[in-house]
């Protein structure tokens, strides 16, 4: 139940009908959450920015079939963020002409990668979870994104992913197990490499 002033279904109707201003408002509204999700999957914030751009380009390209869940686009956008991140190279090919027009990112080196990892997940375990999350399949990432990170209801996640509620539950449980296993592996690996053999 929302108390927001902006009526997103109506805003989306206008945007996909060709109102560029309405589309820009949707970008303003959801940019940060899409960017935040992309940061979980990309090592560089500049790649995450490119992913964000491509997600909204996808939103426009696929405007005839995009569906709102609980009157918001955010579920579709986050799932698409996962998909675009997974297919980053292919997506870049599709949108190369457009992405090339975005001002180039500031030069970044290994130090920046370290900084980004540090900034996203300052704690070691958090970093491990982030790393493990990036290793999950797109299906697992979608489930974790919606049900855990974004706290979608069972029905909302089911509607966003167009799968039955029971499947959401089972996929969620398995995705959590895989995330937990990957996190444990990563922590153990980190422990071995950083301080193991003396």
């Amino acid at each position: 139940m929302g108390t927001e002033l902006v009526n997103e279904p109506a805003l989306w109707e206008l945007a996909r009908g060709g109102d560029s201003g309405a589309f820009a408002m949707l970008y303003d509204r959801h940019r940060d959450r899409v960017f935040g999700q992309a940061l979980r999957l990309m090592r560089s914030p500049h790649d995450a920015e490119d992913v964000t751009a491509m997600v909204f380009l996808e939103l426009w390209r696929r405007r005839k079939i995009v569906t709102l869940v609980n009157e918001t686009l955010i579920g579709w956008l986050l799932v698409t963020t996962n998909n675009v991140s997974h297919n980053f190279v292919r997506s870049m090919r599709r949108y190369k002409a457009v992405i090339d027009r975005i001002p180039p990112a500031e030069p970044e080196g290994a130090h920046d990668f370290d900084r980004v990892d540090e900034e996203i997940d300052s704690a070691g375990r958090g970093r491990s979870v982030g790393s493990a999350f990036a290793q999950l399949s797109a299906n697992d990432q979608n489930i974790i994104t919606l049900c855990v990170l974004e706290e979608f209801s069972l029905a909302e996640a089911a509607a966003a992913l167009r799968i039955p509620v029971g499947t959401v539950k089972s996929r969620l449980s398995r995705a959590k197990q895989r995330l937990s296993a990957l996190t444990t592996e990563d922590i153990q690996r980190t422990a071995i490499t950083s301080g193991g053999a003396k």
């Binding site: 009908g17 589309f23 457009v98 975005i102 990112a105 980004v116 900034e119």
Partner: peptide, 28 residues
């Protein structure tokens, strides 16, 4: 630590490109 922020210049450029992209569609 500070969460990475969207580069304002790149965000503005993306926003502009999106508007152009929508408006480039014929029939609207």
């Amino acid at each position: 630590t500070e969460t990475p922020k969207f580069d304002p210049q790149r965000s503005a450029a993306i926003r502009h490109l999106l508007i152009e992209n929508v408006e480039a569609e014929p029939k609207r």
